[in-house]
Write a protein that binds this DNA or RNA. Structure first.
Length: 213
DNA sequence: ATATCGATTATCT
DNA sequence: GATAATCGATATG
């Protein structure tokens, strides 16, 4: 039993949204440009980062509203997808009420269903259970596994199950959550705005960072 | 296990 | 023209 999380979860400070997204499920349903007779792609959210609308130079919204980042300023619960390093897409969900910027970046997932399709999308072979980490451990990887692109998914409403991409609650709650500095940024790099499920093997990066230290 | 580096392009200065 | 919320390959201990 899984149902979409309500929009009110997203209409808050990204730090609170980030904490509450851990343990929820990202779903690529049959309206995401896929054949409707395939099982949905689902994976549990185990690592996210908060990007604040105010006083956060690392956030894409820091320099004001542009064509690229306008979803971050729009209504909560919508997908913000951007292209980075000429290679990768990254997926965020908009936070804060309409008119105020803020977002949460999805950094790592634990695959649940549709694993073969994810492996095909990533172009990697699953030789051992350890290789599952190659599917969704990292923001570029999880976007690849779910076939996320800006053209397809930017602006998508993630609070309704009829969307191609949405966020569900199946009742699971993480036992423990840890905070650490955000990854891969140069500005405001000291702020502890990365949230991980403690001890989860699918968290991205080196072991000590995976533990949230 | 950690470190370094090249790839490749949308976006902004 | 410079930069970037990354990844995968390679090198080294």
């Amino acid at each position: 039993m899984i149902r979409p999380v309500g929009r009110d979860l997203f209409a808050r400070d990204p730090r609170r949204v980030a904490r509450d997204l851990l343990g929820k499920v990202l779903v690529r349903g049959s309206n995401g440009g896929r054949n409707s007779d395939r099982e949905p792609l689902t994976a549990r959210i185990v690592e996210v980062e908060a990007y604040l609308g105010e006083n956060d130079p690392a956030a894409h919204s820091a320099a004001g509203r542009t064509l690229r980042n306008e979803v971050l300023f729009g209504p909560p619960g919508h997908a913000y997808v951007y292209f980075i390093y000429g290679n990768h897409y990254c997926l965020n969900v908009s936070c804060e009420p309409d008119g105020k910027a803020g977002g949460v970046l999805f950094r790592a997932l634990e695959p649940l269903t549709g694993i073969e399709e994810m492996a095909r999308a990533r172009g990697v072979a699953m030789r051992s259970p350890r290789d599952l980490r190659l599917l969704t451990s990292g923001p570029g990887r999880l976007a690849g596994a779910f076939g996320v692109t800006r053209a397809r998914d930017n602006g998508c409403d993630m609070t309704i199950a009829s969307s191609g991409l949405w966020i569900g609650d199946d009742g699971y709650r993480p036992k423990a959550v840890r905070l650490s500095a955000r990854i891969g940024i140069t500005k405001a790099a000291d702020r502890k705005l990365r949230y991980v499920v403690a001890g989860n093997p699918f968290v991205s990066g080196p072991r000590r960072l995976a533990a949230g230290l």
